[in-house]
């Protein structure tokens, strides 16, 4: 009679464990912007160690990368020289356009610009090892002015947004993450611009899915897609990718565009967190609270 009782106790413990597990998962799936202080403390402490550990590791990997870079130097140099002439021409053109743009803005009396931002440089110190939810940890946090939902970019384009912050670290949710809450408002750059929302990622082909584009918009394959700056605190005109395919949704009301991302979501080392200079109404009221 002792054995079954003994087993029962363990069974109850296991069941209680499963109930707690389900409750905790449910709790963490809600959209939380602030973490509790024990979580922040744990993240900060491990972040400090990870930052220290990252220094020698990146020194070694940097050396190998430099060596492999050296192999391609000759070819690259030839290509770059060829493009140098082009560059000078584009530069003068850009300067003229910038000047014109500023003058026109003055005439309109519209000084605000959604595309203006100031970047905060950061280094990646860790990545979620199980890789289901694509999260990376960076070595800058609230103390450096980073807030939840800010855009994160590399030199090539948008890679994600800040999910949560602690005083010295921040967690970035990559655009390629299949988190159901991962949504970014974007627009397709063409004569008749089309707005939509980027949500979802096709693992097999490596394409981003841009959904909810009105069905009557004609979309040119090869158009560039940028952030629209319509949602809260993302600046506009951060490059996301290029349209490669367009499909009509099942109900026929919307279209979905498949985008080839401008950045590589795998090899990420240095990133910039983007702080928009014009603050949206949502963010303003949040700051006042």
């Amino acid at each position: 009679m002792i054995m079954p009782q003994f087993l029962n106790k363990k069974l109850i413990l296991l069941l209680a464990g499963i109930i707690v597990l389900v409750a905790l998962i449910g709790f963490s799936l809600r959209e939380r912007e602030t973490l509790s202080w024990p979580e922040q403390f744990l993240k900060d402490t491990t972040g400090w160690f990870a930052n220290a550990f990252d220094k020698p590791v990146s020194a070694v990997t940097g050396l190998f990368e430099n060596l492999s870079d050296l192999q391609n130097t000759y070819d690259e140099n030839a290509k770059l020289k060829a493009r140098l002439g082009e560059y000078v021409q584009i530069k003068t053109e850009v300067q003229a356009l910038k000047k014109e743009n500023a003058e026109l803005r003055k005439i309109l009396g519209k000084e605000d610009d959604l595309s203006k931002y100031s970047p905060i440089q950061a280094t990646v110190i860790g990545r979620n090892p199980d890789r289901w939810n694509e999260l990376i940890t960076i070595n800058k946090g609230e103390m450096n002015g980073i807030k939840a939902n800010m855009a994160v970019i590399t030199a090539d384009g948008l890679i994600g947004k800040v999910k949560s912050t602690t005083p010295t670290t921040a967690t970035v949710l990559l655009v390629s993450s299949t988190d159901p809450n991962n949504k970014i408002s974007a627009s397709i750059v063409q004569e008749d611009a089309a707005n939509g929302i980027i949500e979802g990622y096709d693992d097999k082909q490596g394409y981003l899915l841009m959904k909810r584009i009105p069905f009557d918009k004609e979309i040119k394959i090869g158009s560039i897609v940028e952030t629209s700056g319509l949602g809260g605190i993302f600046p506009s005109r951060l490059i996301v990718g290029k349209v490669v395919e367009v499909k009509i949704d099942q109900n026929g009301l919307n279209q979905t565009a498949y985008l080839e991302p401008a950045t590589d979501f795998y090899d990420i080392k240095n990133v910039m967190v983007v702080k928009r200079e014009v603050i949206g109404e949502d963010a303003k009221s949040e700051a006042q609270e």
């Binding site: 963490s28 024990p38 979580e39 993240k43 090892p129 289901w132 939810n133």
Partner: peptide, 8 residues
């Protein structure tokens, strides 16, 4: 807490 942000 640190990596997956899904507790439990």
């Amino acid at each position: 807490v640190v990596y997956t942000e899904i507790l439990g």
